[in-house]
Simulated assay, not measured.
Amino acid sequence: MRLLFIAWLLSAAAHAGEPPLRFSVSDSWGMPMMQIDDGRATAGILYDLQARLAQKVGRRAEQLVLPRLRVQRLLARGEIDVRCYVHPAWLAEPQRGYVWSVPFMVQQDLIVGRWNAPELRPEHLEGERLGTVLGFRYPRLERLFASGQVQREDARTQQLALEKLDAGRYRYAVSSHLALDWFNRQQPAGQRLKALQQIAADPISCLIRDAADVPTRALLRALVQMKQNGELEAILARYR
């Protein structure tokens, strides 16, 4: 027992001298994925996931709140260790020097309308302004945006995009199912926004920097273990 305790102390001392893991947090994220207060990440699915992931490999999580474009630049320079909440189709180009983890959730992207919106047909979107989030890529809608059939109306965050829809600024918006459910918590029962059409269901993963100063393989194993032992599902359930 004494030898085990000494080994634990030595291990803790070794980890204490290691730098924190740098996780990127986009300032356009909102609940339930991430709560940002005064420029600091404080709660949410990704906050809990990233803190637990760092803990599992004996590091401290440094959750850096950054504009989306700056995240891209820092990734290109290898100055972000882990980027979670990403899918290959959302990237403008492959991310060199990083490896993909197993998916930790599936995100459904939906066309959303107000509580009294009629059934949505494809022709209904033509000529419409569609509520979107600044910097977000929507691969299944790019053709409509490029042709001018549908106009993007960007908001800084998903929450703001849904607030503008609720206020009648436009008739339709794009939202993840989790963000929609979170927004509707605050709405009266008869005035909740509703999903009209699913446009995507993407498995969401983490990108982990593959370098000697990052415990890359340990992080990949930790995510697999968290998925197998139910920790990932428990984090998601906390915010449903």
Rank of each mutant, 00 (worst) to 15 (best):
L4S: 05
P139K: 08
Q225C: 09
Q197R: 11
Q107L: 08
Q151D: 06
Q151I: 06
G148Q: 11
A43T: 01
D81T: 06
E163F: 00
R129C: 03
V86C: 06
F136S: 07
P103G: 13
E79Y: 04
A173G: 14
I235P: 02
G168T: 03
S28F: 08
T42Y: 00
R96L: 12
L64Y: 00
H87L: 00
L144A: 15
F136E: 08
Y138N: 06
A189C: 07
Y85F: 13
L125K: 12
A7L: 07
L74P: 14
R114D: 01
V99M: 09
Q228C: 04
V133S: 10
Q55R: 15
G190E: 01
W100Y: 10
R40G: 00
Y239K: 10
L130K: 04
R240N: 11
E62V: 02
Q55M: 14
Y172H: 12
R209Q: 11
L4I: 01
P19R: 15
G39F: 02
L144M: 14
K164W: 12
L53V: 13
S24P: 12
A167N: 13
G190Q: 02
G230P: 13
A12W: 12
E163Y: 01
R2Y: 09
I235E: 04
L162T: 03
P103W: 01
E62Y: 05
G127S: 12
L10D: 02
A155R: 08
C206S: 11
P32N: 10
R185K: 12
I45A: 10
G30Y: 00
R217Y: 11
A117F: 00
P122H: 03
